[in-house]
């Protein structure tokens, strides 16, 4: 009888001391047990603001960004106002300030006639190309057909562009396109990108459009100055260039958040 009482007491103590592992609904599971205060649902602009406070911004340095589309189209960069816009044919390249958030417009897509997309890009870090070759090493990402379809259907697509850490990626040939890894919506896309390298930009895209009747300047965000160089325009007119010296751009990867992740994870 004494042994049974002891077991009952032990079971009671076990029940009280076992660590409870309920996951709070609003919190994302940690990656490698590390603390990641930022995630895809953090208010836009927070990561850029923190990048500014961390000293990653350089006032006189404009980070080139190149946006590619599935085929043709026009990419418009807004300087924080619909009146100050730069229309560039895809792949479009413009130089933006780190620590700012810009609104873009993607239009004239042959796959989506009459549909305009208004993604935003939040630059949180910069690349360090050889001196004088900044325009040759842009942060580049592609809005794929699948992602555009998601956005057209009202989904929010969040892409985190990161610079790969060489010892954390599989060995691949250098002239491959950037790899896109899609993860589950319940996971922290910024943390996943941070696992694989150094996040440099966050791209968000959905189906919202500005009000055509009433002016909506707040829709275009705070923005910031944009620099369009002649070299950028020249390179933008060409297709992607793959060469062995283009190391940084080729090593760029993208982690995006999409609905098909469940299937992809299940296939693994």
């Amino acid at each position: 009888m004494t042994r049974v009482s002891l077991i009952l007491w032990l079971s009671l103590i076990t029940a009280l001391t076992l660590p409870s592992r309920y996951v709070a609904a609003q919190q994302y599971p940690s990656v490698d047990g590390r603390q990641f205060p930022l995630n895809q649902m953090t208010p836009p602009g927070t990561a850029a603001e923190w990048a500014t406070k961390l000293g990653r911004t350089t006032p006189d340095y404009f980070q080139p960004v190149r946006v590619s589309l599935p085929a043709t189209g026009v990419v418009t960069f807004f300087e924080g106002s619909p009146d100050r816009a730069y229309d560039l044919p895809a792949p479009a390249q413009a130089s933006l300030l780190v620590g700012r958030m810009y609104r873009l417009r993607v239009s004239n897509l042959p796959e989506f006639p009459g549909v305009d997309f208004f993604p935003s890009i939040e630059l949180i870090d910069r690349l360090h190309p050889p001196a004088g070759k900044a325009d040759d090493y842009p942060i580049e990402f592609e809005l794929t057909l699948e992602e555009l379809e998601w956005a057209a259907n009202g989904r929010l697509v969040t892409k985190v562009v990161y610079l790969e850490q060489p010892n954390r990626v599989p060995v691949t040939i250098l002239d491959a396109k950037e790899r896109i890894k899609t993860i589950e919506p319940s996971h922290n896309v910024i943390a996943e990108a941070d696992q694989l390298g150094r996040p440099v930009a966050i791209v968000r895209m959905g189906g919202r459009t500005p009000d055509p009747v009433r002016p909506e300047p707040a829709f275009f965000g705070p923005g910031g100055p944009i620099r369009i160089t002649q070299k950028s325009v020249g390179t933008a007119a060409h297709t992607r260039r793959a060469s062995t010296d283009n190391i940084e751009s080729n090593q760029a990867g993208v982690v995006s958040l999409g609905p098909k992740t469940m299937r992809r994870v299940a296939q693994r």
Binding site: A24, Q26, Q27, G33, P37
Partner: peptide, 23 residues
């Protein structure tokens, strides 16, 4: 050589950030 990338969903001692509303 990528064993360090695998992780478990709820390791003891892991860190949890507060949700955005609290931050």
């Amino acid at each position: 050589n990528l064993g360090g990338l695998s992780h478990y969903g709820g390791n003891k001692g892991e860190y949890h950030a507060p949700p955005p509303a609290m931050m």
